[in-house]
Amino acid sequence: MAISGAQCRAGRALAELSRDMLAKLAKVDAMAIEHFERKLGKPDAATVDAIGAALEAAGIVFIPENGGGVGVRLKFTASEAKRIATLENEGGNVGLDDVQQ
Rank of each mutant, 00 (worst) to 15 (best):
I84R: 06
R83G: 03
Q101K: 13
A54N: 02
V72R: 00
G41T: 12
D20T: 12
V99H: 09
A6D: 12
T77L: 15
I51W: 04
E88C: 12
L74R: 11
K39G: 02
K27R: 12
A85C: 13
I84W: 11
F62W: 06
N89D: 15
P64Q: 05
L14N: 02
I3S: 01
V61D: 11
G11M: 01
L17D: 00
F76N: 09
M21V: 10
N89H: 08
A2H: 08
A50W: 03
E80A: 12
E34M: 08
G69N: 06
A23M: 03
N93C: 04
L74Q: 06
L96H: 12
S18W: 11
D20C: 05
H35G: 02
M31I: 11
H35M: 11
A30H: 04
R38T: 11
E80N: 02
D20A: 14
R19H: 06
F62H: 07
E37Q: 13
A2K: 09
R12I: 00
A53C: 10
A54T: 02
A46W: 02
V70F: 12
A30Y: 01
A58M: 05
A10S: 10
K75E: 04
D98A: 15
G95T: 08
E65D: 11
E88L: 15
A26G: 02
Q100G: 09
R9N: 03
G67I: 03
A13L: 03
D98W: 11
G11N: 01
T47C: 04
D44T: 09
S18R: 05
A53L: 07
Q101Y: 11
A2F: 06
R9D: 01
A57L: 15
D29P: 05
E80F: 06
L74I: 03
F36P: 03
L22E: 01
N93P: 04
A15T: 01
S18Y: 09
A23Y: 03
R73K: 15
V72I: 03
G69A: 04
M1S: 13
V99T: 08
A13F: 02
K24G: 07
L55K: 00
A85W: 07
A53V: 02
D29A: 06
A78W: 08
A45Y: 09
R73M: 14
I63T: 14
E37K: 06
A26W: 01
A57I: 06
G91P: 00
A10D: 07
M31D: 15
L22G: 00
I84H: 04
I63V: 15
R38L: 15
L87K: 11
A30N: 03
G67W: 02
A81H: 15
A13I: 03
N66I: 06
K24A: 11
V48H: 07
T47S: 12
N93G: 07
D44E: 08
I33W: 08
R9H: 04
G92T: 13
G91Q: 04
L14Y: 00
E37D: 13
L17P: 00
A57C: 13
N89M: 09
K82D: 14
C8P: 02
G91H: 02
A10F: 03
I33C: 00
N93I: 07
L55M: 07
E65K: 05
V99A: 12
A2V: 06
A6K: 13
I63S: 10
V94W: 14
A26S: 02
R9C: 01
D98G: 15
A23H: 03
E56Q: 13
A30G: 01
I63F: 10
K42L: 07
G69C: 05
K24M: 08
R73E: 14
A13W: 01
E16N: 04
